[in-house]
Simulated assay, not measured.
Amino acid sequence: MTEQDFILKGFDTSVENGKVTWESPSNIALVKYWGKKKNQIPENPSISFTLSECKTITEVTFSKKEGNDFSFEVFFEGEANEAFKPKIQTFFERIEPYVPFLRQYHFKIETKNTFPHSSGIASSASGMSALALCLMSIEEQLSVTQGLVAEAARSGTEKSNHYFNQKASFLARLGSGSACRSIEGPLVVWGSHEEIEHSSDLYGVKFNENIHVNFENYKDTILLVDKGEKQVSSTLGHNLMHGHPFSERRFEQAHNNLSELATILKNGDLDQFINIVESEALTLHAMMMTSSPYFILMKPNTLEIINSVWNYRAKTGSKLCFTLDAGANVHLLYPDAEAEKVLDFIKTELVAYCQNGHYICDTVGYGAKHL
């Protein structure tokens, strides 16, 4: 698929109003994407676990309007939120060529999270993917027979759903890069990779290989070390990869790690899984610490948790490992069979390093849902 394939070729202007609701999960990257080109194109491919409980629920009410400006209002957790509007304005400007009905309607966007906003749990991923899915549902309502959605629908539900998800991922990417990995699950690849069939820089694709039983119902417990706003925006961080002294080697490393991880996900080698996932997390932060300007998003308690995980694994032989996003919080990944023991370890040793003792228990999930 190319960008041209996602252009809506016509829509029914007689539709006066409507309402749609979607929930979309966050995701946690195993191989990290850090650095992007123009139009939200990644410098390297990534792969992520889709989560289940950490999600955004978005309801969009739309009504016909006069005038030719974008018109929308945003409510977060039931209250009007002006801070979100610039990002949505930019999003609408980017996606208008593909969803040309945006200026025809006023949109009331009501959204809420099941987790703390701006806490390093990729709220932009779940939020932008939920909004993109709502817009795709509106497109379905407005599309006419000459549109690609209608063509797909005539060819059968499976093809229609595939196009719907692919375009939703494509649109979500233009709002937040990692959002394109939240549409489906349990594993999604974003970024062109020669060994991953159908992989693309334009949208995320399900990792459709036979995933080993070791990764079924895999757990992710997020330790909330710092629930405040991030010190540095992800956009700024990505931009600092331009001219970074280690960027080219990093992009090469990501390609190699994805190749290895693709094999591991099929053969179930948890020791090698741990090596790659933890290395990827630390490499992400190493890129931040060696950029110009440089910055550190880990907190002292982040390092305490990492060392505790290493000690616990050495003592018990556990397959528990950690990963990090661009923030201080720690994602603990572990097999379902170890859930009881790991949760006991968290409660007895790690909760002390969490802000107000807070952590979130999640499981790998299967993508967004239409409500």
Rank of each mutant, 00 (worst) to 15 (best):
M1I: 13
Q4E: 13
K9Q: 14
V15R: 08
A29V: 09
Y33M: 11
W34I: 09
K37D: 09
S48C: 07
E53R: 14
T56V: 07
F70C: 05
V74R: 03
F75Q: 14
E77S: 14
A80C: 02
A83R: 12
A83T: 13
P86D: 04
I95F: 02
P97N: 05
P100F: 01
L102S: 07
I109T: 07
K112I: 01
T114E: 02
H117I: 15
G120R: 00
G127P: 01
L133T: 08
V144L: 11
T145M: 03
Q146P: 00
T157A: 13
K159R: 11
H162S: 14
Y163N: 05
Y163F: 15
F170K: 11
S178C: 07
W190R: 10
W190T: 11
S199T: 11
S200L: 05
L202T: 04
Y203S: 08
Y203Q: 05
F207E: 07
I211V: 15
N214S: 13
F215Y: 12
E216T: 14
L224D: 03
V225W: 00
Q231W: 00
V232S: 03
L236N: 10
H242I: 13
Q253N: 08
L261A: 07
N267L: 01
L270R: 08
L270M: 15
E278N: 08
M288H: 12
P293I: 09
P300D: 04
L303C: 12
E304N: 14
K315N: 13
G317D: 02
D325L: 06
A326N: 06
G327V: 10
D336P: 00
F345V: 09
T348A: 03
E349I: 02
A352V: 12
C354Y: 01
C354V: 06
N356A: 13
H358A: 15
I360L: 14
T363Y: 00
K369A: 12
